[in-house]
């Protein structure tokens, strides 16, 4: 559910576009430093993973289902900069290939989901990790709670954009209440699935979880083999 063309006025859309280009350029620089010449294939494959993970429906209640957004999941698994780039790549492809989200609103969507959702969510994750014990379950809990909070933060980001450039005079308090209320519920699902997914990766390849690198001695040999499952 991405912002379409015309929902937010042109000046705010253009400002968000400029801001997102700046954030992407900075992230791209960090990613090429971190991954060196592996950057393109690895980040590209992780972006394809995020895209697929967003198609993964999980049950919510009584047969209804939701789907993953994946901002904090990507940031915890591969690092905040690569994670933000991957979310932005997914948004680009969705806007250009699937007509999902307006091209003029692409900057707004990147700010909400890549900058606030992935980068901001990772800041929350680090803060939580500092407060929780330095254990594997600490990482799992921190990623889940951060994922839930990041969804609400992204909704607040949308609300700020709406307050600045929304095109109609609806009471801002009403919009805030509705957005935050709905996204609190979405955030619970996002948090649970993110925590379970991080836990699943931690149990097989803890060395691949960027947000838990301090728990894994870098000299330890990586366990080989992917988990079974189809």
């Amino acid at each position: 559910m991405h912002i379409p063309d015309g929902f937010i006025n042109a000046p705010v859309s253009i400002a968000a576009g400029a801001a997102s280009l700046g954030a992407l350029a900075a992230s791209a620089r960090r990613v090429s430093e971190e991954l060196a010449e592996r950057a393109a294939p690895l980040a590209g494959l992780v972006a394809a993973f995020v895209f697929a993970a967003q198609m993964l429906n999980f049950p919510v209640a009584a047969g209804t289902s939701g789907h993953l957004l994946g901002g904090v999941l990507a940031a915890v698994l591969v690092g905040p900069w690569t994670g933000a780039i991957c979310i932005a790549l997914v948004l680009f492809v969705q806007a250009l290939v699937f007509a999902d989200g307006g091209l003029s609103a692409l900057g707004l969507n990147v700010v909400n989901m890549a900058v606030i959702g992935a980068l901001g969510g990772y800041v929350v994750f680090r803060a939580l990790r500092g407060a929780l014990p330095r254990t594997r379950s600490g990482v799992v809990v921190a990623s889940g709670v951060a994922a839930g909070i990041s969804v609400v933060l992204a909704a607040i980001g949308f609300w700020v954009e709406y307050a600045l450039g929304g095109t109609v005079g609806v009471d801002l308090g009403t919009v805030f209440g509705a957005m935050v209320g709905v996204h609190l519920l979405i955030g619970i699902g996002e948090g649970v699935i993110t925590a379970l997914t991080v836990g699943a990766v931690m149990s097989v390849r803890p060395d691949l979880v960027h947000g838990a690198r301090d728990l894994v001695p870098s000299a330890a040999p990586a366990r080989s083999g992917a988990p079974s499952g189809g």
């Binding site: 690895l42 993964l56 999980f58 698994l77 379970l196 997914t197 699943a200 691949l208 988990p227």
Partner: peptide
Amino acid sequence: IAASAGALFIRSF
């Protein structure tokens, strides 16, 4: 489902 997502990440990476 989360286990599938985790396995999918490892396979993609």
